[in-house]
Design a protein around this nucleic acid. Sequence first.
DNA 1: GTGTCATTTTTGATTCATTCAAAAATAGGT
DNA 2: ACCTATTTTTGAATGAATCAAAAATGACAC
Lengths: 153, 153
Amino acid sequence: MLDSQPDAPADALIRGAGLRVTTTRVAVLEALRARPHATADDVFARVSGTLAGTSKQSVYNALGDFADAGLARRIEPAGHSGTFELRVGDNHHHVVCTGCGRIDDVDCVVGAAPCLHVPEGSGFVIETAEVTFWGVCPDCRAESEAEKPRGSR
Amino acid sequence: MLDSQPDAPADALIRGAGLRVTTTRVAVLEALRARPHATADDVFARVSGTLAGTSKQSVYNALGDFADAGLARRIEPAGHSGTFELRVGDNHHHVVCTGCGRIDDVDCVVGAAPCLHVPEGSGFVIETAEVTFWGVCPDCRAESEAEKPRGSR
DNA sequence: GTGTCATTTTTGATTCATTCAAAAATAGGT
DNA sequence: ACCTATTTTTGAATGAATCAAAAATGACAC
Protein backbone atom coordinates (compact mmCIF):
# COMPACT_ATOMS: atom_id res chain seq x y z
CA MET A 1 0.00 0.00 0.00
CA LEU A 2 2.78 2.37 0.92
CA ASP A 3 5.06 3.57 -1.78
CA SER A 4 7.94 1.67 -0.29
CA GLN A 5 10.21 1.83 -3.33
CA PRO A 6 9.41 4.93 -5.28
CA ASP A 7 12.32 4.43 -7.65
CA ALA A 8 11.50 0.87 -8.60
CA PRO A 9 10.76 0.13 -12.27
CA ALA A 10 7.31 1.26 -13.28
CA ASP A 11 6.01 -2.23 -13.93
CA ALA A 12 7.14 -3.46 -10.53
CA LEU A 13 5.40 -0.56 -8.83
CA ILE A 14 2.19 -1.12 -10.73
CA ARG A 15 2.21 -4.85 -10.16
CA GLY A 16 3.09 -4.29 -6.53
CA ALA A 17 0.00 -2.15 -6.17
CA GLY A 18 -2.11 -5.08 -7.33
CA LEU A 19 -2.74 -3.73 -10.80
CA ARG A 20 -2.15 -5.28 -14.18
CA VAL A 21 0.79 -3.92 -16.07
CA THR A 22 -0.27 -2.27 -19.30
CA THR A 23 1.47 0.08 -21.69
CA THR A 24 -0.95 2.82 -20.79
CA ARG A 25 -0.33 2.52 -17.08
CA VAL A 26 3.42 2.41 -17.48
CA ALA A 27 3.31 5.52 -19.66
CA VAL A 28 1.07 7.34 -17.20
CA LEU A 29 3.37 6.46 -14.33
CA GLU A 30 6.40 7.71 -16.24
CA ALA A 31 4.54 10.90 -17.05
CA LEU A 32 3.85 11.46 -13.36
CA ARG A 33 7.51 10.90 -12.61
CA ALA A 34 8.48 13.48 -15.21
CA ARG A 35 5.94 15.99 -13.92
CA PRO A 36 5.29 15.49 -10.23
CA HIS A 37 2.08 17.53 -10.20
CA ALA A 38 0.15 16.76 -13.33
CA THR A 39 -3.48 17.01 -14.36
CA ALA A 40 -5.15 14.38 -16.53
CA ASP A 41 -4.64 16.76 -19.44
CA ASP A 42 -0.96 17.18 -18.67
CA VAL A 43 -0.51 13.42 -18.55
CA PHE A 44 -2.50 12.89 -21.71
CA ALA A 45 -0.45 15.51 -23.56
CA ARG A 46 2.72 13.70 -22.60
CA VAL A 47 1.67 10.10 -23.21
CA SER A 48 -0.10 10.82 -26.48
CA GLY A 49 3.33 11.61 -27.88
CA THR A 50 4.57 8.07 -27.43
CA LEU A 51 1.35 6.05 -27.32
CA ALA A 52 -0.46 6.85 -30.51
CA GLY A 53 -4.02 5.74 -30.00
CA THR A 54 -4.46 6.62 -26.34
CA SER A 55 -7.55 8.38 -25.13
CA LYS A 56 -8.02 10.84 -22.34
CA GLN A 57 -10.45 8.38 -20.82
CA SER A 58 -7.66 5.82 -20.46
CA VAL A 59 -5.57 8.39 -18.68
CA TYR A 60 -8.45 9.11 -16.30
CA ASN A 61 -8.81 5.37 -15.74
CA ALA A 62 -5.14 4.84 -15.02
CA LEU A 63 -4.92 7.86 -12.72
CA GLY A 64 -8.05 6.82 -10.87
CA ASP A 65 -6.75 3.28 -10.49
CA PHE A 66 -3.43 4.57 -9.19
CA ALA A 67 -5.22 6.73 -6.67
CA ASP A 68 -7.45 3.85 -5.56
CA ALA A 69 -4.45 1.57 -5.22
CA GLY A 70 -2.55 4.12 -3.17
CA LEU A 71 0.10 4.56 -5.83
CA ALA A 72 -0.82 8.17 -6.46
CA ARG A 73 -2.68 10.92 -4.70
CA ARG A 74 -5.20 13.29 -6.17
CA ILE A 75 -5.26 16.85 -4.97
CA GLU A 76 -7.56 19.59 -6.13
CA PRO A 77 -6.65 23.13 -5.16
CA ALA A 78 -9.56 25.55 -5.48
CA GLY A 79 -9.99 26.68 -9.05
CA HIS A 80 -7.73 23.96 -10.36
CA SER A 81 -8.61 20.65 -11.92
CA GLY A 82 -7.63 17.38 -10.31
CA THR A 83 -3.87 17.03 -10.01
CA PHE A 84 -1.96 13.86 -9.31
CA GLU A 85 1.30 13.15 -7.55
CA LEU A 86 3.23 9.99 -6.84
CA ARG A 87 4.52 11.16 -3.51
CA VAL A 88 2.22 9.35 -1.13
CA GLY A 89 2.42 7.95 2.33
CA ASP A 90 4.26 10.86 3.85
CA ASN A 91 2.73 13.97 5.20
CA HIS A 92 3.37 16.91 2.99
CA HIS A 93 1.43 19.89 1.78
CA HIS A 94 1.40 22.25 -1.17
CA VAL A 95 2.12 25.79 -2.29
CA VAL A 96 0.09 26.96 -5.25
CA CYS A 97 1.11 29.97 -7.30
CA THR A 98 -1.79 32.37 -7.74
CA GLY A 99 -0.15 33.59 -10.92
CA CYS A 100 0.71 30.57 -13.03
CA GLY A 101 -0.85 27.75 -11.01
CA ARG A 102 2.43 26.01 -10.38
CA ILE A 103 2.26 23.59 -7.47
CA ASP A 104 5.21 22.71 -5.26
CA ASP A 105 5.48 20.37 -2.33
CA VAL A 106 5.96 21.72 1.16
CA ASP A 107 7.29 19.46 3.84
CA CYS A 108 5.27 19.46 6.98
CA VAL A 109 6.78 22.14 9.15
CA VAL A 110 5.16 21.39 12.47
CA GLY A 111 5.29 17.69 13.13
CA ALA A 112 4.05 14.34 12.06
CA ALA A 113 0.86 13.61 10.15
CA PRO A 114 -1.59 15.21 10.48
CA CYS A 115 0.71 18.04 11.34
CA LEU A 116 -1.87 20.23 13.00
CA HIS A 117 -3.73 20.46 16.21
CA VAL A 118 -6.99 18.72 15.65
CA PRO A 119 -9.99 20.90 16.36
CA GLU A 120 -11.71 19.83 19.52
CA GLY A 121 -15.33 20.14 20.42
CA SER A 122 -16.50 19.99 16.85
CA GLY A 123 -17.69 16.45 17.29
CA PHE A 124 -15.94 15.47 14.09
CA VAL A 125 -13.49 12.60 14.13
CA ILE A 126 -10.63 13.96 12.08
CA GLU A 127 -8.90 11.71 9.58
CA THR A 128 -6.59 14.05 7.72
CA ALA A 129 -5.48 17.65 7.67
CA GLU A 130 -4.71 19.29 4.39
CA VAL A 131 -2.76 22.51 4.13
CA THR A 132 -2.57 24.66 1.03
CA PHE A 133 -0.42 27.73 0.86
CA TRP A 134 -1.23 30.32 -1.75
CA GLY A 135 1.40 32.70 -2.98
CA VAL A 136 3.50 33.90 -5.88
CA CYS A 137 6.26 31.77 -7.31
CA PRO A 138 9.71 33.19 -8.11
CA ASP A 139 9.04 33.26 -11.85
CA CYS A 140 5.78 35.16 -11.56
CA ARG A 141 7.33 37.52 -9.08
CA ALA A 142 10.17 38.30 -11.46
CA GLU A 143 7.66 38.87 -14.21
CA SER A 144 5.50 41.26 -12.24
CA GLU A 145 8.56 43.19 -11.11
CA ALA A 146 9.65 43.56 -14.71
CA GLU A 147 6.35 45.25 -15.47
CA LYS A 148 6.61 47.86 -12.75
CA PRO A 149 10.35 48.25 -12.20
CA ARG A 150 10.09 50.87 -9.43
CA GLY A 151 9.27 49.68 -5.94
CA SER A 152 5.77 50.91 -6.67
CA ARG A 153 2.52 50.01 -5.02
CA MET B 1 -14.03 45.84 2.83
CA LEU B 2 -14.03 44.10 6.16
CA ASP B 3 -17.26 42.68 7.37
CA SER B 4 -17.35 45.14 10.21
CA GLN B 5 -21.00 44.69 11.13
CA PRO B 6 -22.05 41.20 10.19
CA ASP B 7 -25.44 41.61 11.82
CA ALA B 8 -26.41 44.81 10.07
CA PRO B 9 -29.50 44.76 7.85
CA ALA B 10 -28.85 43.08 4.54
CA ASP B 11 -29.32 46.21 2.47
CA ALA B 12 -26.88 48.18 4.60
CA LEU B 13 -24.26 45.46 4.22
CA ILE B 14 -24.71 45.29 0.49
CA ARG B 15 -24.65 49.05 0.04
CA GLY B 16 -21.69 49.28 2.37
CA ALA B 17 -19.81 46.90 0.11
CA GLY B 18 -20.34 49.29 -2.79
CA LEU B 19 -23.02 47.23 -4.48
CA ARG B 20 -26.51 48.23 -5.54
CA VAL B 21 -29.27 46.86 -3.38
CA THR B 22 -31.53 44.51 -5.31
CA THR B 23 -34.10 41.99 -4.23
CA THR B 24 -31.95 39.19 -5.59
CA ARG B 25 -28.91 40.26 -3.61
CA VAL B 26 -30.87 40.71 -0.41
CA ALA B 27 -32.40 37.27 -0.80
CA VAL B 28 -29.02 35.69 -1.53
CA LEU B 29 -27.50 37.35 1.51
CA GLU B 30 -30.33 36.12 3.72
CA ALA B 31 -29.90 32.64 2.31
CA LEU B 32 -26.22 32.71 3.23
CA ARG B 33 -27.15 33.82 6.72
CA ALA B 34 -29.57 30.92 7.05
CA ARG B 35 -27.06 28.43 5.71
CA PRO B 36 -23.53 29.54 6.49
CA HIS B 37 -21.91 27.18 3.99
CA ALA B 38 -24.01 27.11 0.87
CA THR B 39 -23.39 26.26 -2.74
CA ALA B 40 -24.97 28.21 -5.59
CA ASP B 41 -27.52 25.42 -5.85
CA ASP B 42 -28.33 25.59 -2.14
CA VAL B 43 -28.86 29.32 -2.37
CA PHE B 44 -30.93 29.03 -5.51
CA ALA B 45 -33.14 26.38 -3.93
CA ARG B 46 -33.82 28.68 -1.01
CA VAL B 47 -34.36 31.96 -2.85
CA SER B 48 -36.48 30.44 -5.60
CA GLY B 49 -39.07 29.81 -2.92
CA THR B 50 -39.62 33.49 -2.25
CA LEU B 51 -38.41 35.11 -5.47
CA ALA B 52 -40.46 33.51 -8.20
CA GLY B 53 -38.64 34.32 -11.42
CA THR B 54 -35.06 34.08 -10.22
CA SER B 55 -32.47 32.22 -12.20
CA LYS B 56 -29.47 30.28 -11.09
CA GLN B 57 -27.39 32.63 -13.14
CA SER B 58 -28.51 35.55 -10.96
CA VAL B 59 -27.47 33.64 -7.90
CA TYR B 60 -24.06 33.03 -9.44
CA ASN B 61 -23.86 36.74 -10.23
CA ALA B 62 -24.78 37.82 -6.73
CA LEU B 63 -22.44 35.33 -5.09
CA GLY B 64 -19.60 36.33 -7.39
CA ASP B 65 -20.22 40.00 -6.71
CA PHE B 66 -20.27 39.36 -2.96
CA ALA B 67 -17.00 37.52 -3.20
CA ASP B 68 -15.42 40.27 -5.30
CA ALA B 69 -16.64 42.90 -2.87
CA GLY B 70 -15.27 41.03 0.11
CA LEU B 71 -18.72 40.39 1.55
CA ALA B 72 -18.46 36.65 1.11
CA ARG B 73 -15.76 34.07 0.62
CA ARG B 74 -15.75 31.20 -1.79
CA ILE B 75 -14.22 27.94 -0.71
CA GLU B 76 -13.97 24.78 -2.71
CA PRO B 77 -13.06 21.61 -0.86
CA ALA B 78 -11.82 18.85 -3.16
CA GLY B 79 -14.71 17.02 -4.73
CA HIS B 80 -17.19 19.71 -3.72
CA SER B 81 -18.62 22.53 -5.76
CA GLY B 82 -17.98 26.13 -4.83
CA THR B 83 -19.31 26.98 -1.40
CA PHE B 84 -19.87 30.45 0.01
CA GLU B 85 -19.72 31.85 3.50
CA LEU B 86 -20.28 35.30 4.95
CA ARG B 87 -17.67 34.93 7.64
CA VAL B 88 -14.79 36.87 6.16
CA GLY B 89 -11.94 38.90 7.45
CA ASP B 90 -10.99 36.57 10.24
CA ASN B 91 -8.75 33.61 10.03
CA HIS B 92 -10.65 30.40 10.23
CA HIS B 93 -10.56 27.03 8.56
CA HIS B 94 -12.92 24.17 7.78
CA VAL B 95 -13.80 20.60 8.65
CA VAL B 96 -15.47 18.66 5.88
CA CYS B 97 -17.39 15.47 6.55
CA THR B 98 -16.27 12.71 4.22
CA GLY B 99 -19.69 11.12 4.66
CA CYS B 100 -22.31 13.76 4.03
CA GLY B 101 -20.18 16.69 2.90
CA ARG B 102 -21.20 18.91 5.78
CA ILE B 103 -18.80 21.78 6.32
CA ASP B 104 -18.15 23.41 9.69
CA ASP B 105 -15.91 26.27 10.66
CA VAL B 106 -12.82 25.66 12.72
CA ASP B 107 -11.22 28.52 14.54
CA CYS B 108 -7.58 28.89 13.96
CA VAL B 109 -5.95 26.86 16.67
CA VAL B 110 -2.37 27.99 16.40
CA GLY B 111 -2.26 31.74 16.06
CA ALA B 112 -3.13 34.67 13.90
CA ALA B 113 -3.59 34.65 10.15
CA PRO B 114 -2.04 32.87 8.40
CA CYS B 115 -1.89 30.55 11.34
CA LEU B 116 0.93 28.38 10.12
CA HIS B 117 4.62 28.53 9.75
CA VAL B 118 5.32 29.72 6.29
CA PRO B 119 7.47 27.37 4.30
CA GLU B 120 10.91 28.81 3.78
CA GLY B 121 13.29 28.21 0.95
CA SER B 122 10.56 27.57 -1.55
CA GLY B 123 11.03 30.98 -3.12
CA PHE B 124 7.28 31.54 -3.01
CA VAL B 125 5.96 34.65 -1.34
CA ILE B 126 3.07 33.29 0.68
CA GLU B 127 -0.17 35.24 0.84
CA THR B 128 -2.54 32.87 2.62
CA ALA B 129 -2.62 29.48 4.25
CA GLU B 130 -5.72 27.37 3.96
CA VAL B 131 -6.37 24.39 6.20
CA THR B 132 -8.99 21.77 5.53
CA PHE B 133 -9.68 18.99 7.98
CA TRP B 134 -11.38 15.88 6.70
CA GLY B 135 -13.30 13.64 9.02
CA VAL B 136 -16.64 12.17 9.98
CA CYS B 137 -19.34 14.32 11.53
CA PRO B 138 -21.35 13.20 14.57
CA ASP B 139 -24.44 12.35 12.49
CA CYS B 140 -22.56 10.17 10.02
CA ARG B 141 -20.69 8.51 12.84
CA ALA B 142 -23.93 7.65 14.59
CA GLU B 143 -25.30 6.29 11.35
CA SER B 144 -22.32 4.07 10.61
CA GLU B 145 -22.37 2.75 14.16
CA ALA B 146 -26.03 1.87 13.80
CA GLU B 147 -25.17 -0.31 10.82
CA LYS B 148 -22.51 -2.35 12.60
CA PRO B 149 -23.51 -2.24 16.26
CA ARG B 150 -20.59 -4.27 17.55
CA GLY B 151 -17.26 -2.52 17.96
CA SER B 152 -16.39 -4.08 14.66
CA ARG B 153 -14.24 -2.53 12.07
C1' DG C 1 2.78 -21.83 -26.89
C1' DT C 2 -2.49 -21.71 -26.80
C1' DG C 3 -6.90 -20.83 -24.86
C1' DT C 4 -9.64 -18.59 -21.65
C1' DC C 5 -11.63 -15.05 -18.88
C1' DA C 6 -11.42 -11.12 -16.18
C1' DT C 7 -9.54 -6.73 -16.60
C1' DT C 8 -8.48 -2.75 -19.35
C1' DT C 9 -8.88 0.29 -23.18
C1' DT C 10 -11.45 2.46 -26.55
C1' DT C 11 -15.25 5.02 -28.36
C1' DG C 12 -18.90 8.01 -27.75
C1' DA C 13 -22.27 10.07 -25.14
C1' DT C 14 -23.70 12.37 -20.76
C1' DT C 15 -23.59 14.91 -16.56
C1' DC C 16 -22.60 18.77 -13.75
C1' DA C 17 -20.78 23.26 -12.26
C1' DT C 18 -19.67 27.26 -14.13
C1' DT C 19 -19.04 30.94 -17.51
C1' DC C 20 -20.18 33.74 -21.61
C1' DA C 21 -23.18 36.93 -24.12
C1' DA C 22 -27.04 39.76 -25.60
C1' DA C 23 -31.45 41.61 -24.56
C1' DA C 24 -34.74 43.24 -21.06
C1' DA C 25 -35.41 45.19 -16.54
C1' DT C 26 -34.20 48.07 -12.68
C1' DA C 27 -31.66 51.05 -9.02
C1' DG C 28 -30.60 55.40 -7.72
C1' DG C 29 -28.75 59.93 -8.66
C1' DT C 30 -30.25 64.29 -11.18
C1' DA D 1 -40.13 61.56 -13.29
C1' DC D 2 -35.96 60.66 -16.26
C1' DC D 3 -31.77 58.88 -17.58
C1' DT D 4 -27.93 55.77 -17.59
C1' DA D 5 -25.07 52.46 -15.75
C1' DT D 6 -25.73 48.31 -13.41
C1' DT D 7 -28.18 44.09 -12.80
C1' DT D 8 -31.15 40.37 -14.10
C1' DT D 9 -32.90 37.32 -17.38
C1' DT D 10 -32.63 34.03 -21.01
C1' DG D 11 -30.26 30.80 -23.52
C1' DA D 12 -26.18 28.88 -25.14
C1' DA D 13 -21.30 27.24 -24.44
C1' DT D 14 -17.37 25.46 -22.03
C1' DG D 15 -14.43 22.21 -19.44
C1' DA D 16 -13.69 18.53 -16.26
C1' DA D 17 -15.14 14.33 -15.16
C1' DT D 18 -18.13 10.22 -15.27
C1' DC D 19 -20.95 6.53 -17.35
C1' DA D 20 -21.65 2.65 -20.48
C1' DA D 21 -21.05 -0.82 -24.07
C1' DA D 22 -18.01 -2.95 -27.30
C1' DA D 23 -13.32 -4.24 -28.60
C1' DA D 24 -8.74 -5.37 -27.10
C1' DT D 25 -5.40 -7.29 -24.04
C1' DG D 26 -2.83 -9.23 -19.77
C1' DA D 27 -1.91 -13.12 -17.14
C1' DC D 28 -2.99 -17.42 -15.61
C1' DA D 29 -3.86 -22.58 -16.39
C1' DC D 30 -3.01 -26.15 -19.40
